[in-house]
Amino acid sequence: GEEMDTAEIARQVKEQLIKHNIGQRIFGHYVLGLSQGSVSEILARPKPWNKLTVRGKEPFHKMKQFLSDEQNILALRSIQGR
């Protein structure tokens, strides 16, 4: 696969979550399948791509996919709003 700019992906995700008022817990649960603790760690201190294991890269693939389609963001927003 291609190398990803993990810091940039994390920054964009944080931006979207704040902009749409989506909590990290909801994002972690529905998008990444991770706990809030793992999510906040990944978003606060993303490791460089070449330092990640295959498993460590997974959340970034999912985040990139999440960012690529605004429908994903809107869907999360409606879950959050319940």
Score class of each variant (00 low, 15 high):
residue 1 G to H: 06
residue 1 G to C: 12
residue 2 E to Q: 09
residue 2 E to Y: 08
residue 3 E to W: 12
residue 3 E to H: 12
residue 3 E to V: 10
residue 3 E to D: 13
residue 4 M to C: 02
residue 4 M to R: 03
residue 4 M to G: 03
residue 5 D to M: 03
residue 5 D to R: 03
residue 5 D to T: 13
residue 5 D to N: 10
residue 6 T to D: 01
residue 6 T to V: 01
residue 6 T to K: 01
residue 7 A to I: 08
residue 7 A to W: 08
residue 8 E to C: 07
residue 8 E to Y: 05
residue 9 I to V: 09
residue 9 I to C: 04
residue 9 I to G: 03
residue 10 A to G: 03
residue 10 A to L: 01
residue 10 A to E: 01
residue 11 R to Q: 06
residue 11 R to V: 05
residue 12 Q to L: 07
residue 13 V to L: 04
residue 14 K to C: 06
residue 14 K to N: 11
residue 14 K to T: 04
residue 14 K to H: 15
residue 15 E to I: 13
residue 15 E to Q: 10
residue 16 Q to A: 15
residue 17 L to M: 04
residue 17 L to E: 03
residue 18 I to F: 15
residue 18 I to Y: 13
residue 19 K to W: 03
residue 19 K to Y: 06
residue 19 K to E: 06
residue 19 K to F: 07
residue 19 K to D: 05
residue 19 K to N: 07
residue 19 K to C: 05
residue 19 K to T: 08
residue 20 H to K: 04
residue 20 H to A: 05
residue 20 H to S: 04
residue 20 H to F: 12
residue 20 H to T: 03
residue 21 N to T: 05
residue 21 N to F: 03
residue 21 N to V: 03
residue 22 I to P: 02
residue 23 G to V: 07
residue 23 G to H: 13
residue 23 G to F: 06
residue 23 G to I: 05
residue 24 Q to E: 14
residue 24 Q to R: 08
residue 24 Q to C: 09
residue 24 Q to N: 11
residue 25 R to P: 11
residue 25 R to Y: 13
residue 25 R to W: 10
residue 25 R to L: 07
residue 26 I to H: 11
residue 26 I to E: 14
residue 26 I to V: 14
residue 26 I to A: 11
residue 27 F to C: 00
residue 28 G to C: 07
residue 28 G to A: 13
residue 28 G to R: 03
residue 28 G to E: 07
residue 28 G to F: 05
residue 28 G to K: 02
residue 29 H to F: 08
residue 29 H to W: 09
residue 29 H to P: 03
residue 29 H to V: 06
residue 29 H to N: 12
residue 30 Y to A: 10
residue 31 V to H: 00
residue 31 V to Q: 01
residue 31 V to W: 08
residue 32 L to T: 02
residue 32 L to I: 03
residue 32 L to H: 02
residue 32 L to Q: 01
residue 33 G to R: 05
residue 33 G to Y: 00
residue 34 L to N: 05
residue 34 L to P: 03
residue 34 L to C: 11
residue 34 L to Q: 08
residue 34 L to G: 04
residue 35 S to W: 05
residue 35 S to E: 13
residue 35 S to T: 12
residue 36 Q to D: 14
residue 36 Q to M: 09
residue 36 Q to F: 08
residue 37 G to Y: 12
residue 37 G to H: 13
residue 37 G to K: 15
residue 37 G to V: 11
residue 37 G to C: 12
residue 38 S to G: 11
residue 38 S to P: 10
residue 39 V to W: 05
residue 39 V to E: 04
residue 39 V to P: 03
residue 39 V to Y: 03
residue 40 S to M: 11
residue 40 S to A: 14
residue 40 S to H: 15
residue 40 S to P: 06
residue 41 E to L: 05
residue 41 E to M: 05
residue 42 I to R: 00
residue 42 I to N: 03
residue 42 I to G: 01
residue 43 L to W: 02
residue 43 L to T: 00
residue 43 L to A: 02
residue 44 A to C: 08
residue 44 A to R: 09
residue 44 A to Q: 14
residue 45 R to M: 11
residue 46 P to S: 02
residue 47 K to Q: 14
residue 47 K to D: 10
residue 47 K to A: 09
residue 47 K to Y: 04
residue 47 K to L: 14
residue 48 P to Q: 06
residue 48 P to R: 04
residue 48 P to S: 08
residue 48 P to L: 04
residue 49 W to T: 04
residue 49 W to P: 11
residue 49 W to A: 07
residue 49 W to N: 01
residue 49 W to S: 04
residue 50 N to R: 11
residue 50 N to S: 15
residue 50 N to L: 04
residue 50 N to I: 04
residue 50 N to T: 08
residue 51 K to Y: 07
residue 51 K to F: 10
residue 51 K to H: 10
residue 52 L to R: 00
residue 53 T to K: 02
residue 54 V to Q: 15
residue 55 R to V: 11
residue 55 R to C: 11
residue 55 R to M: 12
residue 55 R to T: 13
residue 55 R to A: 15
residue 55 R to D: 14
residue 56 G to W: 06
residue 56 G to S: 06
residue 56 G to T: 05
residue 57 K to N: 03
residue 57 K to F: 02
residue 57 K to E: 04
residue 58 E to F: 04
residue 58 E to D: 09
residue 58 E to H: 03
residue 60 F to P: 01
residue 60 F to R: 00
residue 60 F to T: 01
residue 60 F to N: 00
residue 60 F to W: 14
residue 61 H to N: 09
residue 61 H to T: 11
residue 61 H to M: 13
residue 62 K to T: 05
residue 62 K to D: 01
residue 62 K to R: 09
residue 63 M to R: 00
residue 63 M to N: 00
residue 63 M to E: 01
residue 64 K to L: 11
residue 65 Q to C: 08
residue 65 Q to T: 12
residue 65 Q to V: 09
residue 66 F to T: 00
residue 66 F to E: 01
residue 66 F to L: 02
residue 66 F to I: 03
residue 68 S to C: 08
residue 68 S to F: 07
residue 69 D to L: 05
residue 69 D to G: 06
residue 69 D to S: 11
residue 70 E to C: 09
residue 70 E to I: 07
residue 70 E to H: 13
residue 70 E to G: 09
residue 70 E to Q: 11
residue 71 Q to L: 07
residue 72 N to Q: 14
residue 72 N to Y: 10
residue 72 N to D: 07
residue 73 I to N: 04
residue 73 I to F: 12
residue 73 I to E: 03
residue 74 L to C: 08
residue 74 L to I: 14
residue 74 L to S: 10
residue 74 L to V: 13
residue 74 L to R: 11
residue 74 L to P: 04
residue 74 L to T: 10
residue 74 L to Y: 09
residue 75 A to Y: 12
residue 75 A to Q: 14
residue 76 L to C: 04
residue 76 L to V: 05
residue 77 R to K: 15
residue 77 R to D: 06
residue 77 R to Q: 13
residue 77 R to A: 14
residue 77 R to N: 09
residue 77 R to M: 10
residue 77 R to V: 12
residue 78 S to G: 13
residue 78 S to Q: 15
residue 78 S to W: 07
residue 79 I to P: 07
residue 79 I to D: 06
residue 79 I to T: 08
residue 80 Q to R: 07
residue 80 Q to M: 10
residue 80 Q to K: 09
residue 80 Q to V: 13
residue 80 Q to E: 13
residue 81 G to M: 15
residue 81 G to A: 14
residue 82 R to N: 15
residue 82 R to S: 13
residue 82 R to E: 14
residue 82 R to P: 15
